[in-house]
Amino acid sequence: MTRIKRYVPPILLISPSLVLVGIFVYYLIFGSVQLSTTDTHSFPQFAGTVPHENVGIDNFVELLRSKDFQHSLKNLLLYTAIFITGTMFFGFLWAWLLDRRSRAEGVFRSLYLFPMAVSSVAAGVVWRWLLNANQGKDASGLNRLFQATGLGFLENGWTTSVSFGIAAIAMPAIWQMSGYVMALFLAGFRGIPGELREAARMDGAKEWQIYRHVLFPQLSPVALSALIILGHMSLKVFDLIVSVTDYRFYPTKAPAVDMANYMNTGDYANAAAVGVILLLVILVLIVPYLIHTAREDRK
């Protein structure tokens, strides 16, 4: 009896959040899944003036078969790979450079963090210019800068490449989020007791050995959180694409953009289906993480 009594207050305290999450996450997901198994491909069907039918998983089968959606998925994969690699690389590098108690560390840190303060819509305004596709004499944006700094061989068409255009979108994304990853790693570095490094040094370990055997293992949880946060941001990429290029621009399509396009044309079933596919992808990524956390907790 006393045990149950003890459980009442915490459950009460958490219940408002639970109800909200229940409605605004699970109930809505349930609605999306339902919609994705119907043939609601037009506004009239969505409005209910023309009936719709249950079609099971047909939408999913067709989506996954469609060349265009495969292109979007491939783009998403490429974007995610480049975005995560880039942000992790720069974030780690900057943190590592700043870790040694640099003078003016605060200034560097704030300025490196600055792009995160810029919304995708605002970033899109300027990156649209920087990623201008003109080359040679008409070059502007980054291409012009490359010419001026003797890096002319780097000139390229940026977002206009069908196969790699999405990689250009990853650049502003890396620009935005590297500072955040830096802050995470910086916190990670600072969280490692100085005695640990000192002890290793005493034992005659070389600097790289210290990194290999002392610092990196300590940083891996930080890296894992960074990966999770970046990963789920990456899968949702939308604002940035539509502000730098366009909803209908083929080379930079991604599932979230497809979803918006389907909605714009009244194809709510396919919009929901794309959403469910994204959700499944996220599940695949996230479930191992959740299991991992749960296992750690049990220890």
Binding site: I29, S32, L35, M263, A271, V274, L278, I282
Partner: peptide, 9 residues
Amino acid sequence: FIPYQAVMV
């Protein structure tokens, strides 16, 4: 982790 577009409607 839910993609918000998925629940927008």
